[in-house]
């Protein structure tokens, strides 16, 4: 099943300058009961977004000043549980890129498996991004996957790492499982000889 292809993106961004944003904040466990991948966006950051009576809280996703396809979070984004629902909810809400200065491993894998691009930038560049959004909430950030570069409106930019295989998958919309299924004979042979 091919995923949406990712090449470049120009968008405003939503800032969330909080560290250690864990997957229980991204999507609380009580919303993991669906048996499909769709519809998780409405509960993204549920307990930061809504009071217990479902009235909206003072939170960046409820503030029309901020919008866009890029979510910018503090260091150690996505720590905690392995729930892929975290990546699904961010994607389903409409984000295509998450920028942080550090990602938890499993979240990063899950994001990459769902056409959601995690971009790790330096602490200084992250600060710069937060500052530029603060100055102008509609500032446009350009993400160029083929060049592996993030560029801000003032022209400053930083390159980011992504392994070549995952980059190819994102650009072409490939899944890991397509590759593994192509190895079935080798796997069968391995299983019989080990």
């Amino acid at each position: 099943m091919s995923k949406e292809k990712f090449i470049t993106l120009k968008s405003s961004a939503v800032p969330l300058p909080i560290e250690n944003i864990d997957t229980d904040q991204i999507i609380p466990a009580r919303f993991l009961k669906a048996t499909t991948r769709e519809g998780f966006g409405e509960n993204l950051f549920r307990d930061w977004r809504y009071n217990s009576d479902d009235s909206p809280k003072d939170f960046v996703l409820n503030d029309s000043t901020y919008s866009g396809k890029i979510l910018v979070g503090g260091k150690n984004f996505g720590c905690g549980s392995s729930r892929e629902h975290a990546a699904w909810s961010i994607y389903d809400y409409g984000f295509r890129v998450v920028i942080s200065s550090f990602f938890a491993d499993i979240f990063k894998n899950n994001a990459l498996n769902n056409a959601l691009l995690p971009i790790q930038v330096s602490d200084d560049f992250l600060k710069k991004i937060f500052a530029s959004i603060k100055k102008n909430p509609s500032t446009q950030i350009v993400v160029d996957l083929s060049q592996q570069k993030v560029t801000l409106e003032d022209g400053s930019s930083e390159s980011f790492e992504i392994n070549a295989y995952k980059k190819t998958c994102l650009i072409n919309g490939y899944d890991d499982i397509d590759y593994l299924l192509s190895l079935r004979d080798e796997i069968k042979h391995f299983e019989l000889t080990h």
């Binding site: 392995s82 498996n113 899944d175 890991d176 499982i177 190895l183």
Partner: peptide, 30 residues
């Protein structure tokens, strides 16, 4: 499940995976 690391107490490589990876393992054992 991220707490799959528990099983490592027996001297093995155990780790948590996401659902796309669960599908990989079901479909290919890899």
């Amino acid at each position: 499940d991220s707490h799959t690391s528990t099983h490592g107490a027996f001297g093995n490589i155990s780790f948590g995976i996401g659902t796309s990876e669960v599908e990989q393992v079901l479909g290919t054992q890899c």
